[in-house]
Protein backbone atom coordinates (compact mmCIF):
# COMPACT_ATOMS: atom_id res chain seq x y z
CA UNK A 1 0.00 0.00 0.00
CA UNK A 2 1.65 3.13 -1.18
CA UNK A 3 -0.91 5.76 -0.28
CA UNK A 4 -2.27 6.47 3.14
CA UNK A 5 -5.41 4.41 3.66
CA UNK A 6 -7.33 7.46 4.81
CA UNK A 7 -6.90 9.10 1.41
CA UNK A 8 -7.70 6.01 -0.55
CA UNK A 9 -11.09 6.20 -2.25
CA UNK A 10 -11.51 2.45 -1.93
CA UNK A 11 -10.81 2.53 1.77
CA UNK A 12 -13.29 5.35 2.24
CA UNK A 13 -16.01 3.52 0.38
CA UNK A 14 -15.91 0.75 2.97
CA UNK A 15 -17.19 3.22 5.52
CA UNK A 16 -20.03 4.37 3.30
CA UNK A 17 -23.07 2.19 3.16
CA UNK A 18 -23.59 0.55 -0.20
CA UNK A 19 -26.73 1.82 -1.91
CA UNK A 20 -27.15 -1.57 -3.56
CA UNK A 21 -25.60 -4.77 -2.33
CA UNK A 22 -26.67 -7.84 -4.29
CA UNK A 23 -25.23 -11.28 -3.73
CA UNK A 24 -25.77 -14.41 -5.80
CA UNK A 25 -29.02 -13.22 -7.39
CA UNK A 26 -30.59 -15.88 -9.60
CA UNK A 27 -33.94 -15.45 -11.30
CA UNK A 28 -35.65 -18.26 -13.15
CA UNK A 29 -38.99 -17.47 -14.77
CA UNK A 30 -41.64 -20.20 -14.61
CA UNK A 31 -39.00 -22.79 -13.83
CA UNK A 32 -37.51 -22.46 -17.29
CA UNK A 33 -36.07 -19.15 -18.42
CA UNK A 34 -32.92 -18.27 -16.54
CA UNK A 35 -32.87 -14.46 -16.67
CA UNK A 36 -30.20 -13.93 -14.01
CA UNK A 37 -27.48 -16.47 -13.37
CA UNK A 38 -25.86 -15.30 -10.16
CA UNK A 39 -25.46 -11.54 -9.96
CA UNK A 40 -23.06 -9.97 -7.47
CA UNK A 41 -23.12 -6.21 -7.44
CA UNK A 42 -22.22 -3.38 -5.07
CA UNK A 43 -23.11 0.21 -5.87
CA UNK A 44 -21.77 2.99 -3.66
CA UNK A 45 -24.22 5.59 -2.42
CA UNK A 46 -24.45 9.00 -4.09
CA UNK A 47 -23.09 7.46 -7.27
CA UNK A 48 -24.54 7.47 -10.74
CA UNK A 49 -24.36 3.83 -11.73
CA UNK A 50 -25.09 2.50 -15.22
CA UNK A 51 -25.92 -1.11 -15.88
CA UNK A 52 -24.89 -1.58 -19.47
CA UNK A 53 -25.96 -4.52 -21.56
CA UNK A 54 -27.89 -5.54 -24.64
CA UNK A 55 -31.62 -6.27 -24.62
CA UNK A 56 -32.37 -9.57 -22.94
CA UNK A 57 -29.23 -9.51 -20.79
CA UNK A 58 -31.20 -9.35 -17.54
CA UNK A 59 -31.03 -5.62 -16.78
CA UNK A 60 -34.76 -5.16 -16.31
CA UNK A 61 -35.12 -8.35 -14.27
CA UNK A 62 -32.40 -7.19 -11.89
CA UNK A 63 -34.02 -3.78 -11.52
CA UNK A 64 -37.42 -5.34 -10.86
CA UNK A 65 -35.89 -7.45 -8.10
CA UNK A 66 -34.08 -4.47 -6.57
CA UNK A 67 -37.28 -2.40 -6.63
CA UNK A 68 -39.13 -5.20 -4.75
CA UNK A 69 -41.51 -6.05 -7.57
CA UNK A 70 -40.61 -9.70 -7.37
CA UNK A 71 -38.39 -11.89 -5.22
CA UNK A 72 -35.23 -13.47 -6.60
CA UNK A 73 -35.24 -17.25 -7.06
CA UNK A 74 -31.93 -17.40 -5.17
CA UNK A 75 -29.65 -14.95 -3.41
CA UNK A 76 -30.48 -11.74 -1.61
CA UNK A 77 -30.13 -8.05 -2.17
CA UNK A 78 -30.03 -5.01 0.08
CA UNK A 79 -31.11 -1.60 -1.13
CA UNK A 80 -30.12 1.24 1.22
CA UNK A 81 -29.67 -1.43 3.88
CA UNK A 82 -33.15 -2.95 3.47
CA UNK A 83 -33.65 -6.52 2.31
CA UNK A 84 -35.66 -6.51 -0.94
CA UNK A 85 -37.85 -9.39 0.22
CA UNK A 86 -38.36 -8.82 3.94
CA UNK A 87 -37.82 -5.07 4.02
CA UNK A 88 -39.77 -4.27 0.84
CA UNK A 89 -42.02 -1.71 2.49
CA UNK A 90 -38.99 0.23 3.77
CA UNK A 91 -37.49 0.34 0.29
CA UNK A 92 -40.70 1.44 -1.39
CA UNK A 93 -40.88 4.53 0.81
CA UNK A 94 -37.45 5.80 -0.27
CA UNK A 95 -37.03 4.82 -3.92
CA UNK A 96 -38.07 6.59 -7.06
CA UNK A 97 -38.64 4.35 -10.04
CA UNK A 98 -39.24 4.94 -13.73
CA UNK A 99 -39.99 1.73 -15.64
CA UNK A 100 -39.00 1.31 -19.25
CA UNK A 101 -42.57 1.46 -20.52
CA UNK A 102 -44.77 4.51 -20.19
CA UNK A 103 -46.02 4.76 -16.62
CA UNK A 104 -48.40 7.71 -16.48
CA UNK A 105 -52.12 7.88 -17.13
CA UNK A 106 -52.59 9.57 -20.47
CA UNK A 107 -56.26 10.45 -20.06
CA UNK A 108 -55.69 12.93 -17.22
CA UNK A 109 -53.41 15.98 -17.02
CA UNK A 110 -49.76 16.06 -15.97
CA UNK A 111 -50.67 17.87 -12.77
CA UNK A 112 -53.35 15.28 -11.97
CA UNK A 113 -50.84 12.46 -12.44
CA UNK A 114 -48.57 14.14 -9.92
CA UNK A 115 -51.50 14.74 -7.58
CA UNK A 116 -52.50 11.06 -7.58
CA UNK A 117 -48.93 10.00 -6.81
CA UNK A 118 -48.60 12.69 -4.12
CA UNK A 119 -51.70 11.23 -2.46
CA UNK A 120 -50.43 7.67 -2.83
CA UNK A 121 -47.24 8.70 -1.03
CA UNK A 122 -49.31 10.44 1.63
CA UNK A 123 -47.72 13.85 1.10
CA UNK A 124 -49.71 16.15 3.40
CA UNK A 125 -52.36 18.35 1.86
CA UNK A 126 -50.71 21.68 2.73
CA UNK A 127 -47.41 20.97 0.96
CA UNK A 128 -48.83 18.97 -1.96
CA UNK A 129 -49.50 21.79 -4.38
CA UNK A 130 -46.16 23.47 -3.69
CA UNK A 131 -44.13 20.25 -4.08
CA UNK A 132 -45.90 19.29 -7.31
CA UNK A 133 -45.43 22.74 -8.80
CA UNK A 134 -41.77 22.76 -7.81
CA UNK A 135 -41.21 19.34 -9.37
CA UNK A 136 -43.02 20.25 -12.60
CA UNK A 137 -41.23 23.57 -12.76
CA UNK A 138 -37.84 21.96 -12.14
CA UNK A 139 -38.28 19.61 -15.05
CA UNK A 140 -39.71 22.25 -17.34
CA UNK A 141 -43.31 21.09 -17.57
CA UNK A 142 -45.18 23.84 -15.74
CA UNK A 143 -46.61 25.28 -18.97
CA UNK A 144 -48.26 22.02 -19.96
CA UNK A 145 -49.20 20.92 -16.44
CA UNK A 146 -52.92 21.31 -17.12
CA UNK A 147 -52.92 19.64 -20.52
CA UNK A 148 -53.87 16.00 -21.03
CA UNK A 149 -50.79 13.76 -21.05
CA UNK A 150 -52.10 12.29 -24.33
CA UNK A 151 -51.00 15.53 -26.02
CA UNK A 152 -47.42 15.30 -24.65
CA UNK A 153 -44.38 14.34 -26.72
CA UNK A 154 -42.34 11.27 -25.75
CA UNK A 155 -39.74 13.46 -24.08
CA UNK A 156 -42.36 15.34 -22.07
CA UNK A 157 -43.89 12.06 -20.88
CA UNK A 158 -40.47 10.84 -19.75
CA UNK A 159 -39.85 14.08 -17.88
CA UNK A 160 -43.27 13.81 -16.22
CA UNK A 161 -42.41 10.28 -15.11
CA UNK A 162 -39.11 11.47 -13.70
CA UNK A 163 -40.82 14.38 -11.96
CA UNK A 164 -43.24 11.99 -10.28
CA UNK A 165 -40.35 9.74 -9.22
CA UNK A 166 -38.56 12.75 -7.73
CA UNK A 167 -41.65 13.99 -5.88
CA UNK A 168 -40.63 12.27 -2.65
CA UNK A 169 -36.92 13.28 -2.95
CA UNK A 170 -35.90 9.62 -3.13
CA UNK A 171 -32.66 8.34 -1.60
CA UNK A 172 -32.14 6.19 -4.67
CA UNK A 173 -33.58 6.51 -8.14
CA UNK A 174 -34.01 3.51 -10.42
CA UNK A 175 -34.36 4.31 -14.12
CA UNK A 176 -34.93 1.53 -16.64
CA UNK A 177 -33.72 2.74 -20.05
CA UNK A 178 -34.59 6.35 -19.16
CA UNK A 179 -34.10 7.81 -22.62
CA UNK A 180 -35.21 4.97 -24.86
CA UNK A 181 -37.04 6.24 -27.89
CA UNK A 182 -36.14 9.88 -27.26
CA UNK A 183 -34.43 12.13 -29.75
CA UNK A 184 -30.93 13.40 -28.85
CA UNK A 185 -32.23 16.80 -27.72
CA UNK A 186 -34.81 15.26 -25.40
CA UNK A 187 -32.19 12.85 -24.04
CA UNK A 188 -29.95 15.78 -23.22
CA UNK A 189 -32.71 17.65 -21.40
CA UNK A 190 -33.61 14.56 -19.35
CA UNK A 191 -29.99 14.07 -18.29
CA UNK A 192 -29.43 17.72 -17.42
CA UNK A 193 -32.40 17.57 -15.06
CA UNK A 194 -31.25 14.30 -13.53
CA UNK A 195 -27.72 15.57 -13.01
CA UNK A 196 -28.84 18.77 -11.36
CA UNK A 197 -31.21 16.87 -9.09
CA UNK A 198 -28.44 14.48 -8.17
CA UNK A 199 -26.10 17.35 -7.32
CA UNK A 200 -28.72 19.03 -5.18
CA UNK A 201 -29.96 16.04 -3.18
CA UNK A 202 -27.12 13.53 -3.35
CA UNK A 203 -29.47 10.88 -4.63
CA UNK A 204 -27.98 7.61 -5.86
CA UNK A 205 -28.97 7.03 -9.47
CA UNK A 206 -29.06 3.50 -10.84
CA UNK A 207 -29.93 3.25 -14.51
CA UNK A 208 -30.16 0.56 -17.14
CA UNK A 209 -29.11 1.35 -20.64
CA UNK A 210 -27.89 -0.12 -23.85
CA UNK A 211 -26.66 3.26 -25.11
CA UNK A 212 -22.91 3.31 -24.53
CA UNK A 213 -22.62 7.04 -25.00
CA UNK A 214 -25.14 7.57 -22.22
CA UNK A 215 -23.22 5.39 -19.79
CA UNK A 216 -19.99 7.04 -20.94
CA UNK A 217 -21.23 10.59 -20.40
CA UNK A 218 -23.29 10.36 -17.26
CA UNK A 219 -22.23 7.39 -15.15
CA UNK A 220 -19.60 7.51 -12.41
CA UNK A 221 -19.47 3.77 -12.45
CA UNK A 222 -20.53 1.12 -14.93
CA UNK A 223 -21.50 -2.51 -14.60
CA UNK A 224 -21.42 -4.66 -17.69
CA UNK A 225 -24.11 -7.31 -17.83
CA UNK A 226 -24.35 -10.10 -20.34
CA UNK A 227 -26.51 -13.25 -20.28
CA UNK A 228 -27.62 -12.72 -16.70
CA UNK A 229 -24.20 -12.12 -15.18
CA UNK A 230 -22.30 -8.98 -14.22
CA UNK A 231 -19.04 -9.42 -16.05
CA UNK A 232 -17.17 -6.38 -14.93
CA UNK A 233 -17.65 -3.17 -12.95
CA UNK A 234 -15.58 -0.05 -12.71
CA UNK A 235 -15.37 3.60 -13.65
CA UNK A 236 -15.50 4.43 -17.34
CA UNK A 237 -11.79 5.26 -17.35
CA UNK A 238 -10.88 2.03 -15.56
CA UNK A 239 -12.87 -0.06 -17.96
CA UNK A 240 -11.42 1.59 -21.04
CA UNK A 241 -7.94 1.29 -19.66
CA UNK A 242 -8.51 -2.39 -18.97
CA UNK A 243 -9.12 -3.04 -22.65
CA UNK A 244 -5.56 -1.87 -23.20
CA UNK A 245 -3.96 -0.98 -26.48
CA UNK A 246 -5.61 0.61 -29.48
CA UNK A 247 -8.55 0.15 -31.76
CA UNK A 248 -8.08 -0.05 -35.51
CA UNK A 249 -11.05 0.91 -37.57
CA UNK A 250 -10.96 -0.35 -41.16
CA UNK A 251 -13.59 0.80 -43.64
CA UNK A 252 -14.22 -1.94 -46.16
CA UNK A 253 -16.11 -2.53 -49.38
CA UNK A 254 -19.20 -4.35 -48.06
CA UNK A 255 -19.35 -8.13 -48.05
CA UNK A 256 -16.72 -10.78 -48.45
CA UNK A 257 -15.58 -11.46 -44.90
CA UNK A 258 -16.48 -14.90 -43.60
CA UNK A 259 -15.86 -16.37 -40.17
CA UNK A 260 -12.73 -18.33 -41.22
CA UNK A 261 -11.12 -15.05 -42.16
CA UNK A 262 -12.20 -13.50 -38.84
CA UNK A 263 -10.55 -16.38 -37.06
CA UNK A 264 -7.33 -15.84 -38.98
CA UNK A 265 -7.47 -12.13 -38.18
CA UNK A 266 -7.77 -12.95 -34.48
CA UNK A 267 -4.56 -14.97 -34.76
CA UNK A 268 -2.54 -12.02 -36.08
CA UNK A 269 0.23 -10.87 -33.75
CA UNK A 270 -0.91 -8.42 -31.06
CA UNK A 271 -4.62 -8.64 -32.05
CA UNK A 272 -6.95 -9.16 -29.07
CA UNK A 273 -10.39 -8.92 -30.58
CA UNK A 274 -12.14 -8.48 -33.92
CA UNK A 275 -15.68 -7.36 -34.64
CA UNK A 276 -17.35 -6.96 -37.97
CA UNK A 277 -19.89 -4.21 -38.66
CA UNK A 278 -21.81 -3.57 -41.85
CA UNK A 279 -18.92 -2.03 -43.72
CA UNK A 280 -16.29 -1.69 -41.05
CA UNK A 281 -13.97 -3.92 -39.15
CA UNK A 282 -12.88 -3.13 -35.60
CA UNK A 283 -9.65 -4.65 -34.46
CA UNK A 284 -8.53 -4.31 -30.86
CA UNK A 285 -4.80 -4.68 -30.57
CA UNK A 286 -2.11 -4.32 -27.93
CA UNK A 287 -0.18 -2.31 -30.41
CA UNK A 288 -1.85 -1.10 -33.56
CA UNK A 289 1.39 -0.48 -35.42
CA UNK A 290 2.44 -4.10 -35.01
CA UNK A 291 -0.96 -5.49 -35.89
CA UNK A 292 -1.70 -3.36 -38.94
CA UNK A 293 0.67 -4.96 -41.47
CA UNK A 294 -0.55 -8.47 -40.64
CA UNK A 295 -4.20 -7.43 -40.83
CA UNK A 296 -3.68 -5.64 -44.14
CA UNK A 297 -1.86 -8.61 -45.60
CA UNK A 298 -4.68 -10.98 -44.71
CA UNK A 299 -7.35 -8.66 -46.12
CA UNK A 300 -5.36 -8.04 -49.30
CA UNK A 301 -4.77 -11.75 -49.72
CA UNK A 302 -8.53 -12.38 -49.52
CA UNK A 303 -9.20 -9.69 -52.11
CA UNK A 304 -10.96 -7.34 -49.71
CA UNK A 305 -10.61 -3.70 -50.53
CA UNK A 306 -9.80 -1.43 -47.58
CA UNK A 307 -11.01 2.13 -48.17
CA UNK A 308 -9.76 3.81 -45.05
CA UNK A 309 -7.90 2.96 -41.87
CA UNK A 310 -8.11 4.96 -38.68
CA UNK A 311 -6.93 4.43 -35.15
CA UNK A 312 -8.68 5.37 -31.93
CA UNK A 313 -8.68 4.84 -28.21
CA UNK A 314 -11.04 2.12 -26.90
CA UNK A 315 -14.71 3.00 -26.43
CA UNK A 316 -17.18 1.32 -24.10
CA UNK A 317 -18.24 -0.77 -27.07
CA UNK A 318 -14.73 -2.20 -27.17
CA UNK A 319 -14.92 -2.82 -23.44
CA UNK A 320 -18.13 -4.67 -24.04
CA UNK A 321 -16.62 -6.57 -26.93
CA UNK A 322 -13.72 -7.65 -24.80
CA UNK A 323 -15.70 -8.86 -21.79
CA UNK A 324 -18.99 -10.03 -23.28
CA UNK A 325 -17.61 -11.26 -26.57
CA UNK A 326 -20.31 -9.48 -28.57
CA UNK A 327 -20.96 -5.96 -29.70
CA UNK A 328 -23.46 -3.90 -27.84
CA UNK A 329 -24.97 -1.74 -30.52
CA UNK A 330 -25.55 -4.05 -33.47
CA UNK A 331 -28.32 -6.20 -32.08
CA UNK A 332 -30.34 -3.53 -30.36
CA UNK A 333 -31.66 -1.30 -33.11
CA UNK A 334 -34.65 -3.38 -34.16
CA UNK A 335 -35.71 -4.02 -30.60
CA UNK A 336 -35.32 -0.30 -30.05
CA UNK A 337 -37.88 0.49 -32.69
CA UNK A 338 -40.32 -1.96 -31.13
CA UNK A 339 -39.82 -0.25 -27.76
CA UNK A 340 -40.42 3.16 -29.27
CA UNK A 341 -43.70 1.89 -30.69
CA UNK A 342 -44.63 0.58 -27.27
CA UNK A 343 -43.96 3.96 -25.75
CA UNK A 344 -45.97 5.73 -28.40
CA UNK A 345 -48.97 3.41 -28.31
CA UNK A 346 -51.31 4.94 -25.81
CA UNK A 347 -53.88 2.18 -25.20
Amino acid sequence: MKHLPILDACALSIFMQSAVDARGIVKVYEGKVRALAGVDLQVGSENVFALLGPNGSGKTTLMRILTTQMPPTEGRALVMGHDTVRGGAGIRRIVGYVPQEMSVWTDITGYENMLIYAKIYGIPCESRRRLINEALDGIGLSEVADKLVRSYSGGMIRRLEIASALLISPKILFLDEPTIGLDPMARKVVWEKLSSFKREFGTTVFFNTHYMDEADLYADEIGIISRGRIIRTGTVAELKRSVGGDVLLLELEPGGIGSPLLERLRAVESVKGVALGESELRVIADDAETALPGVMRLLDGSGILVRKVSMSAPTLDDVFLKYAGTRLESNSRIADIAKVRQTIRRG
Partner: peptide, 14 residues
Protein backbone atom coordinates in the same frame (compact mmCIF):
# COMPACT_ATOMS: atom_id res chain seq x y z
CA UNK B 1 -49.70 -4.02 -16.98
CA UNK B 2 -48.60 -3.67 -20.60
CA UNK B 3 -47.63 -0.08 -19.95
CA UNK B 4 -45.45 0.55 -16.91
CA UNK B 5 -48.20 1.85 -14.62
CA UNK B 6 -48.68 -1.35 -12.65
CA UNK B 7 -44.92 -1.75 -12.20
CA UNK B 8 -44.70 1.80 -10.95
CA UNK B 9 -47.63 1.31 -8.54
CA UNK B 10 -45.90 -1.79 -7.15
CA UNK B 11 -42.90 0.33 -6.20
CA UNK B 12 -45.01 2.83 -4.22
CA UNK B 13 -45.92 2.30 -0.56
CA UNK B 14 -49.38 1.06 -1.66
Amino acid sequence: RESGILKKLLVTPL
